[in-house]
Design a protein around this nucleic acid. Structure first.
Lengths: 246, 246
DNA sequence: GGCAAAATGTGTTAAAAAACATAATTTATT
DNA sequence: AATAAATTATGTTTTTTAACACATTTTGCC
């Protein structure tokens, strides 16, 4: 699958949009609360809202890291291309998560790609501005480091999950991850995240066929109910057991 | 394989040892150069040298993080236990690498285990002291964060390597990693790192049998020469190709 | 609404890798 | 040096998963 930029004539993402308003950074993610009044003004002045359509590419693995991003509305997948078109989804983002900050700090190219799962709004801040704040404010630096420490722990756990668990364990793990990250719809059972089977496969290190097949099996076993991309979790305990035992 | 503590009556590691002397922290890893004179004194006062024997466990996944460590002499493996005794080696350390710092900063338990590949000497610094320095000195915090950014990028690359490459690709990758990390002996061909096949397997996400078999294949193909644990790399280019193509 | 394209579902076959078995060799210990 | 234990080596079988094929359903678009 290709995630093409909607319109190659303009910079990625669009700045013109309806009159949707967003609160300033520090009201959305506690990360920014460590900034002083002055720094907040600086941050607000250098953050702009950009919009992406469903499946539009936000940045690509290997691109020069020009911006640090914070998701405002929608969902974003962070992924890496592996051997022969296969993608590995590294993590999925929800509003107010930041991304692209690692590359900005390390002064390296992005080491993964980001694309919109659904129509999105994001704040973007030029690398230099973000870097400046991190270098200037020790508390802010510490908060960013805490975030990175979480990402690192998660990545190392995922390595073991994805390499050592069997297909059923990996898929169960992914479903529970979606649950943890996005929760349920109002009905208290349906995952509040609609993913194509291909993405589910790319999260779980398996082929799309196997994601479809295994999901059907889970449904037959009464662990889930499937209605297209709407997935109801009926037996969380059993899913956890399948995930734990590999 | 079990890595048992040599003597359960004493705290892990031994402080009594021969009169080996080590330079202060800041002469060994540039990380510490960002500390002021005063902070250096503080760091030196709170870092003590500890010794570990071959295969001795330094810390265990899930242990409360009491220390941040810096390797002085020897080699250390960082690993996670997966499903059914299988270990995944997360990374291998060489002198002056630091480890256990992520858990100290996140104020979490260690999320992986560390054991000595060969007889080792390490500096250890209580979590509170390390944490204090990170919080007090913004430049130091930034340096530590840079290190974490490298570890995070590496971890994400490894996830894709280990999940998507085939056995030959994964083993070739591991061998090149050993080469990059430890280099050659004086002969310019023999890897300066002697690992049992089991560790090679645990690095490469495969069974020990398959590590042995694939290594033999590489030798038959003239890519390597094997003499017990001594591995001569004869055709680096071809190994890189095998690694790249998966 | 109708069409094409994409996504989902399911069965079959082939490839990859683990599991198992057993022998030979090396290493450690007494 | 002798012995036991661990590691290395190699062949065989079984399990797991990818690859392939094709039908069906859903979705997007004019």
């Amino acid at each position: 699958m290709l995630y093409l930029c909607r319109d190659f004539r303009m910079d990625r993402g669009s700045m013109k949009h309806n009159d949707e308003q967003f609160a300033p950074l520090w009201e959305l993610n506690e990360l920014w609360e460590t900034l002083t009044e002055e720094e907040r003004t600086y941050a607000a002045e250098h953050a702009e809202v950009v919009y992406y359509e469903k499946n539009e590419l936000i940045h690509s693995d290997g691109d020069e890291s020009l911006y640090m991003w914070m998701l405002l509305r929608g969902k974003v997948r962070i992924f890496k291309e592996g051997i022969g078109q296969r993608q590995q989804i590294i993590r999925l983002l929800k509003p107010y998560d930041i991304f692209g900050y690692r590359a900005c700090i390390a002064e390296e190219a992005y080491n993964s790609s980001a694309s919109a799962v659904e129509s999105c709004a994001v704040y973007r801040m030029p690398k230099e501005c973000f870097s400046h704040l991190v270098r200037q404010n020790g508390s802010f630096c510490y908060q960013v480091m805490l975030m990175m420490a979480k990402d690192l722990a998660f990545s190392e756990i995922q390595t073991v999950n994805l390499t050592q668990k069997h297909i059923r364990g990996r898929l169960a793990e992914s479903l529970l991850l979606l649950l943890k990250n996005y929760g349920y719809e109002e009905d208290g059972h349906t995952l509040a995240m609609l993913l194509p089977r291909e993405d589910l496969a790319n999260m779980s290190n398996m082929t799309t066929s196997n994601a479809i097949r295994t999901l059907s099996q889970f449904a037959q076993e009464g662990l889930l109910a499937i209605d297209g991309r709407h997935i109801q979790i009926l037996d969380e305990k059993s899913l956890e057991k399948i995930s734990r035992l590999g």
